[in-house]
Simulated assay, not measured.
Amino acid sequence: MSLSINTNTSAMVALETLNATQTELSSTENAVSTGLKVSTAADNPAAFGIAAQMSGNIAGQGAVNDGLSFASQVVSSTTSAADQIISVLHKIQSAVTTLGDNQGSPTSIAGIGDEITNYLTQIDTIARNATTNGVNLLSGGTSDGLSITASSLNYVTGLQGDTATITGFNSLIKNDASVKVAGAGGTTMTDALGLSQSGTAGQNPTSNIFTGSAGSSTISSTFNTSGTVNVSAMISQVQQAITAMTDVTDRLGANTQLLSSMSSYGATVSDNLTAGVGALTDADMAAESAKLTSLQTKQSLAIKSLTIANGQSQNILSLFQG
């Protein structure tokens, strides 16, 4: 190899090697610091594009999972309210049975009637308060007060926009053939259960179907024919209301199981998508660590080589020294 002061081939080679090593080292240091082997489209356009799309799906599935969680909360709140209503209905059945034992006592009839009406107030209050973020599955509509904005629940079940609906149970009860006395649409829960009539949404009942308005000392003509009180029919009326509410809890239980299953599946989908993005973009930290050490050594050697190559020009001077 000839010696030239204009062209230092060794220095050029050493510099190219150093630049290449420095570029690779920068990439490795970025992977180590971010934990990603593909952090921009420049690293791997195809992998970056696929990962970006999958990341969007992860965000979408997260929203679906949040919606399922909200639906679960609505169903849970409604279930608790329905169970409490059934407990109150049991008290009404006891009171109605006692009413049959006091047919000849106007004072007792009036007192028991007021007790039953009070129980009906409890039922309607519980139904109105079973509201989660404006959704109430027991209300007769959106006029019941307490910020009720929807009497049915719609929620998204999957990434592709599939939806499901839980219809309000007030209308279900009202249209239940097992309830002999049912109110009109959008009525109170006690009207729908056939235990009161002509109720106003958002207001407590002022009467019951067994004794009529507050203070009444006689049994309603519905269950009193020519002085003969049909105690069996009164008890049956309450039992039918219990049956209707039990049907509601059964449906709520089925929805709880469905939502639990879908939430579990949604979490699995999110995990799989996250793992898929990781497989495309995550760096192997063990391999990157070994590569970093190797490149740092190569960098040091390249700098040393460039230093030696640059010294060759100085060697030319010795040829002209006497």
Rank of each mutant, 00 (worst) to 15 (best):
133 N>D: 15
198 S>E: 15
145 G>N: 09
97 T>W: 08
124 D>R: 03
179 V>R: 07
97 T>G: 13
206 T>P: 12
180 K>I: 13
158 G>Y: 04
167 T>V: 07
111 G>Q: 11
217 S>R: 00
106 P>K: 00
220 S>M: 06
126 I>Y: 05
185 G>Y: 08
184 A>I: 11
206 T>K: 01
129 N>W: 04
225 T>Y: 08
141 G>C: 07
204 N>R: 00
163 T>H: 06
179 V>Q: 11
220 S>F: 11
175 N>Y: 11
114 D>G: 05
131 T>H: 05
171 S>R: 06
127 A>R: 00
91 K>V: 08
100 G>P: 13
146 L>K: 08
132 T>V: 15
162 D>L: 02
197 Q>T: 15
169 F>R: 03
115 E>G: 03
168 G>E: 03
115 E>S: 13
204 N>D: 14
152 S>A: 06
195 L>R: 00
210 F>L: 08
159 L>N: 09
168 G>V: 06
94 S>Y: 09
147 S>P: 14
129 N>F: 04
159 L>E: 10
106 P>L: 09
226 S>A: 15
205 P>L: 07
188 T>C: 13
124 D>C: 13
143 S>I: 02
139 S>I: 01
215 G>Y: 00
114 D>W: 05
136 N>W: 06
186 G>R: 00
189 M>Q: 02
213 S>W: 01
230 N>Q: 08
88 V>P: 14
143 S>V: 03
141 G>I: 05
87 S>Y: 02
113 G>K: 00
216 S>Q: 03
184 A>R: 07
169 F>L: 11
93 Q>A: 09
214 A>S: 14
111 G>E: 15
108 S>I: 07
144 D>I: 05
205 P>V: 12
156 V>C: 10
114 D>A: 03
85 I>H: 01
124 D>F: 09
93 Q>F: 05
